[in-house]
């Protein structure tokens, strides 16, 4: 019974959603949107579970003085600080339980929550994102070593695309006569991005779409049950 009820719900909801794609008449046309609202409500409650998990795991590490336990204190303090000031003085357009905190806002120029969001959180986020540039360089260095025919082709294609996207590419091939314009590096770069790359990406997307159809059918029909934790 513990397994059968979730399987039955999955089957019914899956079939209704598929039907609603083809029937605009009420109630089918609205079902998909309504179920999305249900999902959002459940997800809203699930946030509490996430926060409890965050607290539990971090407190455990602090209590048992695990390696680098000081970092976990900082995590919890940051969490408590952001939640508290958000509740007390609100965010940009919403007042908190103590109002809008005009005195603090006049001093720091904005609400405390927004101040921390703009000056701490956004900068930390940008820092993490900027690491990507260095990782791309290191990954590209490994990928562009010409060991086999495939990796050599990759290297050549990458050089053409990179040069074609810079002013150097235009300068190198800008002198070519009109009849040889197809060898102009920006054009070659555009060609590679527009045709072979797009074709490859679409092939992956078509394959993935079939994978999604297959997985969905397995789940709807109850053949695939591992998402319920069982066989």
């Amino acid at each position: 019974m513990k397994r059968k009820i979730p399987l039955l719900i999955t089957f019914l909801v899956g079939v209704i959603i598929i039907i609603s794609e083809f029937i605009p008449h009420k109630p089918f046309g609205q079902i998909s949107g309504e179920l999305e609202k249900w999902y959002l409500i459940i997800a809203g409650f699930a946030i509490i579970l996430g926060q409890l998990s965050l607290f539990k795991v971090n407190l455990f590490k602090i209590r048992h003085r695990q390696k680098n336990w000081q970092f976990f204190i900082l995590t919890l303090l940051s969490f408590i600080l952001m939640v508290s000031i958000g509740i007390f003085w609100g965010t940009e357009n919403h007042p908190g339980i103590f109002g809008n905190g005009e005195t603090i806002s006049n001093t720091i120029g904005t609400k405390p929550f927004d101040y921390l969001f703009d000056n701490v959180y956004q900068n930390l986020q940008a820092t993490m994102f900027s690491l990507l540039a260095f990782f791309i360089a290191s990954a590209a260095y490994r990928a562009f070593i010409a060991r086999t025919l495939e990796s050599s082709l990759l290297l050549v294609a990458a050089i053409l695309v990179m040069l074609g996207n810079t002013s150097l590419g235009s300068a190198l091939t800008g002198w070519l006569p009109e009849s040889l314009k197809f060898l102009h590096l920006p054009r070659i770069s555009e060609f590679i991005m527009k045709y072979p790359t797009t074709a490859g990406q679409r092939a992956i997307m078509i394959g993935a779409a079939f994978g999604i159809i297959g997985s969905s059918l397995r789940i709807i029909l109850g053949i695939e049950r591992s998402y319920l934790g069982g066989k």
Binding site: I204, F210, G211, I212, S215, R218, I223, E224, S226
Partner: peptide, 23 residues
């Protein structure tokens, strides 16, 4: 695992005939 292989993983690993059939 590229695209569809990710979705095929469960069926592939389970080795169950009815799951493999869907592939």
């Amino acid at each position: 695992l590229i695209g569809e292989e990710l979705f095929a993983a469960s069926a592939y690993l389970s080795k169950e005939p009815n799951q493999l059939g869907s592939l």
